[in-house]
């Protein structure tokens, strides 16, 4: 009778096994997630302490004065958010369109072109646009360049994400009577969302980093102080600006990760 009781025990075990409750993130995950902001805050406080106690000459103090830095930080954030918003607005619908029956064949071509475009150096793109569009403000030229740069990761991931949805699920949705737009909205997009958000995160990081170059075309941003430091050869200014930019970039990246986590549908 051992085999019979063994089978019964297995059946029991299979049913009672604690299949984990579907949570977005567990205890360890939260600790990991909070590690970065804590680190950033510590470094920033360290910077403030240095700034207070350091001996800066006239030029350095004027470059690093808080009003200017605050304005530039805000410009930098604006550049990032505006560009990111436009990227999502353009790349996601385009990605959706390229996975629908009509345009499916065009998808690899479009992605290949975008890929080739990525080979263009960011500084080259910004400068070219600047020279080519003299009537545009520095801000908008930068936004255009950042948007062009940020489209590829989101486009590619939207396509991959949608293609990765189990076709059986799509068939099940149509099979029980959901219309095509409804299936897209309620089944395909939610299931593709993790991959799409990963692309948005990559794009955000790309954009915030490239936004440092906006200074070269008058777009503002923390790159300005950095540039001042380099041209005037003041190390403290250079390092300060570099540090602040790096911290901002890390915060934006962290924000992207949080967004990814929050928007991920439960149960996946």
């Amino acid at each position: 009778m051992t085999s019979a009781t063994q089978i019964e025990a297995e059946v029991e075990a299979e049913v009672e096994v604690a299949r984990p409750r579907a949570r977005r993130i567990n205890g360890e995950g939260i600790v990991e997630l909070l590690a970065l902001p804590v680190l950033v805050v510590i470094v920033f406080l360290g910077y403030l302490w240095w700034r207070d106690s350091a001996h800066l000459d006239a030029i350095e103090s004027s470059s690093l004065n808080w009003a200017a830095v605050r304005v530039q930080t805000w410009q930098h954030i604006r550049l990032t958010l505006v560009s990111a918003a436009i990227v999502v607005w353009v790349a996601v619908p385009l990605g959706i369109a390229l996975t629908r029956r009509g345009l499916r064949r065009a998808a690899p071509v479009v992605v290949a072109v975008a890929n080739a475009g990525q080979a263009a150096p960011s500084i080259g793109l910004i400068v070219l646009l600047f020279i080519w569009l003299p009537s545009w403000s520095g801000f908008w030229v930068s936004v255009l360049a950042l948007t062009l740069y940020g489209v590829l990761p989101v486009l590619r991931n939207t396509i991959t994400g949608l293609q990765g949805v189990d076709p059986d699920l799509v068939e099940a949705a149509r099979g029980i009577g959901m219309s095509a737009p409804s299936t897209l909205r309620r089944v395909e997009l939610p299931l593709a969302l993790p991959v799409i958000m990963s692309g948005v995160r990559t794009s955000l990081v790309l954009i915030v980093g490239t936004a440092t170059l906006a200074t070269f075309v008058g777009g503002g941003g923390l790159g300005e102080t950095l540039n001042t430091g380099i041209t005037l050869f003041r190390f403290s200014v250079m390092v300060s600006a570099a540090l602040l930019v790096a911290l901002l970039a890390l915060v934006v990246e962290w924000f992207g990760r949080v967004l990814e986590l929050v928007l991920r549908p439960r149960g996946i």
């Binding site: 250079m238 570099a242 540090l243």
Partner: peptide, 11 residues
């Protein structure tokens, strides 16, 4: 990878 290139140059 998150540190912008220009910032690294500055550092």
């Amino acid at each position: 990878l998150t540190i912008p290139a220009l910032a690294l140059v500055g550092l």
